[in-house]
C-alpha cells in the first residue's frame, strides 16, 4: 500500500509540511517495496479549492493514507470520498512521519481539523 506525506522539500529528511492543500510537495511511499517518489503539489497555485485538488491528485496516485498537519472542511470531504485516511502530526521530518506511521503512533482523524484557507495564511 502507498501513503503520502506533505513535505516542504523533495527528500526524506525534509521537514514535513503542516499544510495539506497548499503543501509544497507530496512524498509518496510504497510501504511494500520501501520505494518513494516526490510529486510537486499543483494545489499550491489553485485559485480556490486547493485541498480538493490535492485530494484528487492523491486519489489518482492510489494512496491509502496521507500524513499532514491540518485538513480543512473541503479537503476532508474530498479525502473521505476518495477513501484516503488522514493522520496528523505537529512537526518532524518526512522520514520521522513514515516511522511513526509504521509504529502506529500517529493520530487518525475524521472530519476537518481546521477552517478553510488555513494553509493560505501559513506560507
Amino acid at each position: 500500500m502507498k501513503i503520502a506525506i506533505t513535505a516542504q522539500d523533495k527528500n526524506l529528511d525534509a521537514d514535513f509540511d503542516p499544510r495539506f492543500g497548499r503543501c509544497k510537495y507530496f512524498v509518496i511511499v510504497d510501504l511494500d517495496t520501501e520505494e518513494h517518489r516526490v510529486e510537486q503539489n499543483e494545489g499550491t497555485t489553485a485559485l480556490g479549492g486547493a485541498g480538493i485538488k490535492s485530494a484528487q491528485f492523491l486519489a489518482g496516485c492510489e494512496v491509502s493514507a496521507v500524513i499532514t498537519g491540518h485538513v480543512g472542511p473541503n479537503a476532508s470531504r474530498a479525502l473521505e470520498a476518495a477513501g484516503i485516511k488522514v493522520f496528523v502530526m505537529d512537526s518532524g521530518t518526512v522520514r520521522g512521519a513514515i516511522t511513526a506511521y509504521k509504529e502506529g503512533t500517529l493520530t487518525q482523524v475524521s472530519g476537518a481539523t481546521t477552517d478553510s484557507h488555513t494553509g493560505l495564511n501559513m506560507s
Binding site: 480556490g48 479549492g49 486547493a50 484528487q56 470531504r77
Partner: peptide, 23 residues
Amino acid sequence: CGEICAFNAILPLGKHVLTFPEL
C-alpha cells in the same frame, strides 16, 4: 467536469462526483 473547473468546485472520483457549491 473536473478538468474544466478553475475553482475545483466539482470533483470527479471515478463515477462518484462531489460538488462544492460555495466554490
